[in-house]
Design a protein around this nucleic acid. Structure first.
Lengths: 66, 66
DNA sequence: TCCTAATGTAAAGCTAACTTTACGTAAAGG
DNA sequence: CCTTTACGTAAAGTTAGCTTTACATTAGGA
């Protein structure tokens, strides 16, 4: 699933490691989600949206999925 | 995770079976999510929100979670 | 009274989300 | 050069989301 996490992270000036700590997951998880390798859980999606001060819908692009 | 799926489903007059078909999961999945036994995937949360014409944030109550 | 519809529990199995560890690479600064 | 920082891949293990099947309970209608 496509998302704008990498872009929003860059704006904040955070490393993947920083973001991982902020939402309490491993760096691997951040990498995999940014790369679209797998979709975050609903809870993680929420934490990310909260952190970036946007909605889940603004963070993830659902439209291209089945 | 608490949610208002059961309430919104009742308003629409749908059974658990109806809803399961509409979002393409099993009835067990709907039961478990309504009961809060586990959290839906981000994709399923999105499908439910779309179906009920609301946001994911309106459908699920994240605030009480860790 | 009986049948069906709607909701619920239980259990076993599969897959995807997430973790941990280890290693590779490229850029920047001393 | 050498080290550090940031990003990336890979692989093995655990857990949670989801499926399928089977059965129990309750309420309503014929």
């Amino acid at each position: 699933m496509e998302n704008v996490i990498k872009e929003k992270r860059a704006i904040k000036g955070w490393t993947q490691d920083d973001l991982a700590e902020l939402v309490d997951v491993s760096r691997q998880t951040i990498i995999s989600i940014e790369k679209g390798r797998y979709n975050p859980s609903l809870l993680l999606a929420y934490r990310l949206a909260k952190l970036f001060d946007c909605t889940i819908e603004e963070l993830f692009n659902f439209e291209e999925e089945a």
